[in-house]
């Protein structure tokens, strides 16, 4: 894979405290356009906090985060504009239950980007086809399986035409037989060249698409490397221990 050298996410020395808990401690990283970064680590190590800091769902206490040239840690930054460039997929899908699948996809483009409704619907149908769930356009989220809901959630984020996609354990709430269908969608997205930051325990996925794997523990980045490096010769003892537990 050829990459451009253009950095799209820059994180410099960020810290985040929840009371006495240091959820992020001096974390720095860079993601270039079209890169796929997978973040792994034990529960409570700060993976979600890091991901949520990238679109400021969680504000940081110190440090700097620049997304596509915009410093989101600057108080004057229009975060709503930046978030339109950042799709986010949650563990619990968080679809809007009072809206049909189609409306879940069209709402943000129509209200926020002033896309004409007809065009928004066409685009939504195209995305639903892409995630393999076109026939459910008029259904409500409660009528879908977990795997289907998560695919709709991915399509909803894509409907805003984002430059970056963030995934926070997108398959962790799914029954095992549904994990594959969601991962397939994510792999296809990766092949299309989307910039992705993914928190996951799916090591097969990491191996297949990741350019970089980041291992976190206790709010710190312990080790960063290619998937080959991680799965063949991890350096840090904590990384070794973690990998031996999940592989």
């Amino acid at each position: 894979m050829t990459k451009s050298d253009e950095t799209i996410i820059t994180i410099e020395n960020i810290y985040k405290f929840f009371g006495d808990i240091e959820a992020l401690s001096n974390v720095s990283l860079k993601v270039r356009k079209k890169e796929k970064m997978v973040i792994i680590g034990p529960s409570g190590s700060g993976k979600s906090t890091l991901l949520r800091a990238i679109n400021r769902l969680e504000g940081v206490d110190r440090g700097k985060i620049v997304i596509d040239g915009q410093d989101i840690t600057d108080r004057h930054c229009n975060i709503n504009k930046v978030r339109m460039e950042l799709g986010m997929v949650f563990q619990n899908f968080n679809l809007f239950p009072h809206k049909s699948v189609l409306q879940n996809l069209t709402m943000a483009p129509i209200k926020l980007k002033k896309v004409p409704p007809v065009q928004a619907r066409e685009n939504a149908m195209r995305l639903l086809e892409k995630v393999g769930i076109k026939e459910k356009a008029t259904a409500y989220p409660s009528q879908l399986s977990g795997g289907q809901q998560q695919r709709v959630a991915i399509a909803r984020a894509l409907a805003m035409n984002p430059k970056i996609m963030l995934f926070d354990e997108p398959t962790s709430a799914l029954d095992p037989e549904m994990i594959g269908e969601v991962l397939d969608v994510m792999v296809n997205l990766a092949l299309e060249g989307m910039t992705m930051v993914v928190v996951t325990h799916e090591m097969g996925f990491a191996r297949q698409v990741a350019d970089w794997v980041v291992f976190m523990d206790e709010g710190k980045i312990v080790e960063t490397g290619t998937p080959e490096h991680f799965f063949q010769s991890p350096e840090h003892p904590r990384t070794k221990k973690f990998l031996s537990q999940i592989l």
């Binding site: 978030r83 339109m84 809007f96 926020l112």
Partner: peptide
């Protein structure tokens, strides 16, 4: 209403008040 609803709406780029009126209050 689940906090995830607010987070989903905000992450799409909805402002606080848009989130309230399009997502939270209808539910």
């Amino acid at each position: 209403i689940d906090k995830g609803q607010t987070e989903a709406a905000r992450s799409l780029g909805f402002s606080k008040s848009q989130t309230m009126f399009y997502v939270i209050i209808p539910q």
